[in-house]
């Protein structure tokens, strides 16, 4: 559903809300839902990838050094990565 041009009217939306552009869901940024954001401390990270596996949004990315961080455009701040990170490398911090 297009966001840039503004939201469609009821006459403009497709029949039955069908979507004909693959991947268009990515245009909807869920990051604004977040109350807390994950802060990754690279010195504590052991590169196990547990956060990557558990993230229900699939928005955790591995960087060149093998550490992880969240794509804040999509991270909803659920805190699962922080809860699962057993070395304690991910802190949930209130959004400012």
């Amino acid at each position: 559903m297009a966001a840039k041009k503004g939201l469609e009217t009821w006459q403009e939306i497709t029949l039955g809300n069908m979507v004909f552009r693959p991947g268009s869901a990515a245009e909807y940024k869920t990051g604004s839902w977040r109350a807390k954001k994950p802060i990754f401390t690279k010195t504590k990270c052991i590169k196990c990838g547990v956060c990557f596996i558990y993230c229900p949004e699939g928005c955790i990315i591995q960087d060149e050094q093998g550490c992880f961080e969240a794509d804040l455009d999509y991270c909803k701040g659920c805190g699962i990565c922080s809860a699962e990170c057993w070395p304690g490398a991910i802190d949930m911090v209130e959004e400012g």
Binding site: M1, Q11, N17, M18, V19, Y28
Partner: peptide, 18 residues
């Protein structure tokens, strides 16, 4: 095509109006 999509608050009312 995707059918049976999510209708966010910004779109749900328009969908019902249609």
């Amino acid at each position: 095509v995707s059918m049976g999509t999510l209708g966010l608050p910004e779109y749900y009312a328009e969908s019902l109006k249609a």
